[in-house]
């Protein structure tokens, strides 16, 4: 198992590459979901503000 992660001495380079790829995928997914949440919230706020007038 530790042999697998060591990658014959290239572990740092290989996992550094795949690690960032995974991090980007997680962060970007969270960001687009957050953006959707915020956009829907703003639409609701605008609607509520419009109804009060």
């Amino acid at each position: 198992m530790s042999d697998f992660f060591a990658m014959n001495g290239y572990g740092f380079y290989i996992w550094g590459s795949y690690g960032l790829a995974l991090l980007i995928a997680i962060v970007e997914t969270a960001m687009v979901r957050h953006k959707r949440k915020i956009t829907l919230q703003q639409l609701r706020l605008m609607r509520d503000a419009g109804e009060e007038e």
Partner: peptide, 10 residues
């Protein structure tokens, strides 16, 4: 060696 495996993401 093993380093080429970066290719699959690069």
């Amino acid at each position: 060696g093993e380093a080429y495996r970066i290719m699959f993401i690069h």
